[in-house]
Design a protein around this nucleic acid. Sequence first.
DNA 1: TTGAAAGCGCTAACAA
DNA 2: TTGTTAGCGCTTTCAA
Lengths: 334, 334
Amino acid sequence: MKPTIKDVAQKANVSIATVSRILNNEKGYGEETRKKVLSVIRELGYQPNAVARGLINKKTQSIGVVFPYVSNMYSGEVLSGIEEAAYKSDFSVVICNTDGQQERTLRNLKMLAEKQVDCIIFVSEMVSEETAKFLLNTSIPVLLISTKSEMYPLPYIKTDDQFAAFSAVNYLIQSGHRDIAMLAGPISDPIAGSTRIKGYTQALTSAGFPVKEENIIKVNGFSFEDGLEGYEILKNVKSQCTAVFAASDEIALGVISAAYQNHVSIPEELSIIGYDNLKLAEMAVPPLTTVAQPLKEMGKMAVEMLCDHIQSGKELNSIIMPHKIVERQSVKRY
Amino acid sequence: MKPTIKDVAQKANVSIATVSRILNNEKGYGEETRKKVLSVIRELGYQPNAVARGLINKKTQSIGVVFPYVSNMYSGEVLSGIEEAAYKSDFSVVICNTDGQQERTLRNLKMLAEKQVDCIIFVSEMVSEETAKFLLNTSIPVLLISTKSEMYPLPYIKTDDQFAAFSAVNYLIQSGHRDIAMLAGPISDPIAGSTRIKGYTQALTSAGFPVKEENIIKVNGFSFEDGLEGYEILKNVKSQCTAVFAASDEIALGVISAAYQNHVSIPEELSIIGYDNLKLAEMAVPPLTTVAQPLKEMGKMAVEMLCDHIQSGKELNSIIMPHKIVERQSVKRY
DNA sequence: TTGAAAGCGCTAACAA
DNA sequence: TTGTTAGCGCTTTCAA
């Protein structure tokens, strides 16, 4: 049996209250007792029980994080920011994977609530009405990352997707491209789907170029496979695109890979710009030009804001993070 | 204030014991009371407090996972397996990042113990003496993944690194390569470092080829950057290698990327085989031939074994998982 | 079928 | 400076 505070108290001939005080660096004991107790603690190998603490303090020092897919690189970036900041503030992080399924999302959220996490970070997943309601009803502070609720006032941290997409396409235009295709995610996604398409359209329009419907290729998600698939469609589209804007780096990698198999060289025959600036972009051949979101930074910021909120009651505001174009070698300049 | 079991009991005119029984699907109440209580629960939006439960049950339904770097793709693969199995068994997973630092490892481990996680999965990190001692002293069941303790009997799940490295190099030999370099991780790493070098040496030797010291290039880690760096060294080595065995897929990607910048084409001028079979390998240009570890599977297996152990006292055995060569397009066949 | 009460390991108010 | 005690929200005897 693991020793408890009681065992320590007994062996040190003091009350458990005194041990508790020493453990928590409060005052109210002599140097003598402190030393004695500390030595007993070491001797017994005593470790405080955070569960018991949590019960009485109503604080578990833990952060719940909800991802659609914990294992992709996107989540990894955000997670590393979260983890870093959490570690600094002595929080632990509980992660959940929803697989993009509403039901799993809800079940995970419920679990987090039951486990009494001190706050929740909800990443990059569509906020369904039911989810939003749950999030609003619970007393747990919540921050969204890279997503937002259309109808409910949930604070978020994200980039301006439309503007970022605009910037990406504009970069292509500035580089001398006229005929630009887009590999878009699902339109059903109000954040990363339709919004980025708007940015694309806007850039073309404001440059005085026509928007051709067939140049907007919608795939099912934002993955490598979606990029592979997208390329096949792109190939068959008659227009002579010299460049493509991919709604994610993974999609872009899919296109690059498919292009390689089709012996079309990038960027000589086809230019491509991605979205996210994952580690992946740097590792690609050729290295991928992309619009960067500060994902790690966003994760870090989320936990910092949440901690401030919990400790000092500081309000949780929504924040738009800046994006920027990272130039590498996948776009040809005319 | 969130409603507690007491509020439910009061409102339903029963004792908290009855509510508890209903919550836990035990017997000892009438259908009438059950309905009544359930409706009150819904009405109040009551959610049981897992912390209080944990205190009394001495079970928190949570798994602690320790990674050196949570954000890389390697961790992502393992994590997705862990998460999937944990979700099925109703466990939540709390993740820790050690940054490869011994001190952080220990602090994280302590935190997990204090939080009373039901078991710990320790992934891909060297097991220092102090760490091993901690792990053995605690009463928390532990399983290592992709690592092992040299001196202490901690159960692990891993592949046979030496054999896998042997297979990789042997594949190169079978493909007609004679002069084969290795981009090895740090020799200080007894698992992924020196052991894989042994496999390399062994393959060469048993094929009757000489082992040239300068062909074994040791870099500081297993990252993309290490691969970049390794390529620079490789370039300056006088030998005329036609192929290289990289100790990780990330290193391999670094080599591919550097080769691209140096205008040496892969696999025509230089063949390369990786290690891990991350998603990355598939996404590379050219797609990377590599030796696959079933990382996701290993994560899944770890939690399944741990759950069996907790629930039925089933013993925790060490397991060697099979590896296999996944042929793609980065190795030229003569 | 139900309830009263003890207690999990700890903190915090109050007393001494 | 120290101890006693109540109680956090729950489960689990034991008794009714």
